[in-house]
Lab assay of single mutants.
Amino acid sequence: MQIFVKTLTGKTITLEVEPSDTIENVKAKIQDKEGIPPDQQRLIFAGKQLEDGRTLSDYNIQKESTSHLVLR
């Protein structure tokens, strides 16, 4: 499924993911596309910070959901 990640600069990154993917996996995909190390990434969805060990389905992130990327 596709999800979108919006950066603070207003850029939207499109990612191909599975509901069973962990947040860690998603951060690795963002690193592949954008070159941002996962330890600098914070992903926010529905006002919550997403934890590495959880999956997209844990957070009820469905296709075409948009989460926000904040850099630390």
Rank of each mutant, 00 (worst) to 15 (best):
F45V: 04
I61K: 01
S57A: 14
D32C: 10
L71S: 07
N25P: 00
K33R: 10
Q31I: 02
D21Y: 05
I61S: 01
T66K: 11
T7K: 04
T12H: 07
E24C: 09
S57P: 02
V17Q: 01
K29F: 05
N60A: 08
T7D: 06
I61F: 06
F45R: 03
I3W: 02
N25I: 14
D39N: 12
K33P: 02
V5P: 00
L8T: 13
I23P: 01
I13A: 01
Q31T: 09
D39W: 13
D39K: 11
K63N: 15
I3R: 00
K11A: 08
R54V: 05
D21A: 07
K48V: 14
L50Q: 01
N25R: 14
I3S: 00
T66R: 08
T14Y: 08
I23G: 01
S20A: 09
V17N: 00
I36M: 05
I23Y: 01
I3Q: 01
G53C: 08
T55F: 06
V70W: 10
Q40C: 14
N60H: 09
N25E: 12
E34W: 15
K33M: 12
T7M: 15
E16V: 12
I30R: 00
R72C: 15
V17H: 02
P19L: 10
N25V: 14
K29M: 12
V17T: 03
T14C: 13
L43F: 03
G47Y: 04
S65C: 08
L71H: 06
Q49P: 11
N25G: 08
R72K: 13
V26Y: 01
I23M: 03
V26L: 10
K29R: 07
I44Q: 06
I61Y: 03
I30E: 00
I44Y: 15
S67M: 15
T12E: 06
N60R: 06
D39G: 11
E51G: 04
T55K: 10
Q49K: 10
D52K: 04
L69K: 01
I61A: 02
S20K: 08
S65N: 09
K11T: 08
R42Y: 12
G47H: 05
E24L: 14
I44D: 06
T66M: 11
R54D: 05
P37F: 05
E51K: 08
R42V: 15
K29L: 10
P38D: 03
N25S: 15
K33N: 05
D58T: 04
K48W: 06
L69F: 05
S65G: 09
A28Y: 11
T9Q: 12
K63F: 11
G10C: 10
E18S: 14
A28Q: 13
F45A: 04
L71N: 06
R54G: 05
K27V: 02
S67H: 12
L69W: 03
D58E: 09
I3K: 00
E34H: 07
L56R: 00
V17I: 04
Q2D: 06
S65D: 09
T14G: 05
A28D: 06
T7I: 12
I3A: 01
D39A: 12
K33S: 11
K11E: 08
Q40L: 10
N25C: 12
Q62N: 14
Q41S: 04
A28L: 15
P37L: 06
G47S: 04
I36Q: 02
L8P: 15
K48P: 01
S65F: 09
A46V: 06
T22D: 03
P38H: 10
L50K: 00
L50F: 02
Q31S: 13
I44C: 15
D32E: 14
E51L: 10
S67R: 11
T7E: 03
V5G: 01
Q31W: 15
Q31L: 09
N60G: 15
L50A: 03
K33G: 04
Q41D: 01
K27S: 01
Q2S: 10
R42M: 15
L43Y: 02
E24G: 12
Y59A: 03
G35E: 03
D39E: 13
G47C: 07
K6M: 10
I61Q: 02
L8Q: 14
S57D: 08
K29G: 03
G53D: 11
Q62P: 10
Q2H: 12
H68P: 06
T9H: 13
E64D: 14
K27Y: 03
Q31D: 05
H68V: 13
V17F: 03
M1C: 05
Q49H: 13
T55C: 07
L8M: 13
H68E: 10
E34D: 05
E24Y: 14
G53S: 11
Q2V: 15
E18Y: 14
L50E: 01
L69P: 03
D58S: 11
T9M: 11
D21K: 01
I30C: 01
K48M: 14
I44A: 05
Q49L: 15
I44W: 15
E64T: 09
H68K: 07
T9W: 15
K63S: 14
Q40R: 11
A46W: 08
T14Q: 09
T12I: 15
G35C: 06
T12Y: 11
E64P: 06
L50M: 12
V26I: 12
Q49E: 15
G47M: 03
I61V: 07
A28W: 11
K27A: 01
K27R: 04
F45S: 04
T22G: 03
L15H: 00
G10E: 04
L15G: 00
L50S: 01
M1F: 15
K11F: 08
R72H: 14
G47V: 02
K29Q: 08
R72Y: 15
F45Q: 04
I44V: 09
E51T: 06
N25F: 12
G47F: 04
E16D: 12
T9Y: 14
K48Y: 09
V26W: 01
T66Q: 09
Q31C: 13
N60V: 04
T22P: 05
L15V: 07
G35W: 03
L56P: 01
D39M: 09
E51C: 11
S67Y: 13
D39L: 09
I36D: 02
Q62H: 14
P19V: 07
G10D: 04
L43M: 03
L71K: 06
F4S: 07
K27E: 00
T14A: 09
R54S: 07
